[in-house]
Write a protein that binds this DNA or RNA. Structure first.
Lengths: 131, 131
DNA sequence: CCGGATCCCGTGCGATACTG
DNA sequence: CAGTATCGCACGGGATCCGG
């Protein structure tokens, strides 16, 4: 069989990697992706490249340390590119890679879901706490 | 008085929810949803109700403390229901609510993405570390 | 035996201050 | 303006014990 279909390859990948298994490397990847800063940063980058300070302003409340740290992880994992323009002052721009562009809407969906269903969650909490 | 609290929160709701704002309640919700255990638990519950010990077996590596803790939060937020059958031994079943059923595929998508793109991330890491 | 609560330690976050 | 360094503290999370 010369070529496998895309669906077949996807099935293989699904079998090979299973995040329910503790030792599976996807468990660690899932852990790093399940991070509010990752979600917010990728969401902030969907509209195009952003500077470091620009991101810090957009994502209110992020400490400078976490921003840099998270961006580094994302860069290492091939989700964003880091471009330094040696001007004065230095200009550092972050941009989504193709892979990052693929992931961004997936994480963005969580952000949107949270914003859309906040009221229902509040109602559930009130009901729960009243009990 | 619960209605006062609910009314108060409804007032907040008049403003558009935006997780980029630090003080926005969705930021906290986003933070709790951005959790690997939440992702795995909801993914494990999509096929129907599951017992506590059953979940612990499916989600390898989760301590029962984290399992219980996370399930409580999910219950409070109206994402799962907890049903205790007072038999011997006690039988505790967790099931997705309508709200949980709405969220589950969103979080499940992250798990699937991680499993599907693990190889690309590995390649990116190798390239990054080689530099 | 199942499900939950408690204790306790290490990680990791945030605040602050400093360098290029 | 971007990044690094240091420290203190809170919290995540595992081991262990408890109730039924």
């Amino acid at each position: 069989m010369p070529t496998a279909t895309a669906a077949q390859r996807r099935d293989e990948a699904r079998l090979a990697y299973n995040a329910f298994v503790a030792a599976c490397p996807t468990r660690q990847l899932l852990d790093t992706l399940s991070d509010k800063w990752v979600c917010l940063i990728l969401s902030a980058l969907v509209d195009g490249p952003r500077r470091h300070s620009d991101l810090a302003r957009t994502i209110a409340g992020v400490s400078q340390k976490m921003l840099t740290q998270t961006l580094r992880r994302l860069e290492r994992d091939g989700l964003v590119t880091r471009t330094v323009t040696p001007s004065v002052p230095v200009r550092v721009e972050y941009e989504l890679t193709a892979l990052g562009n693929d992931l961004a809407p997936v994480l963005g969906a969580i952000k949107l879901w949270a914003e859309a269903h906040m009221d229902e969650v509040f109602a559930a909490r009130d009901a729960y706490d009243a009990t």
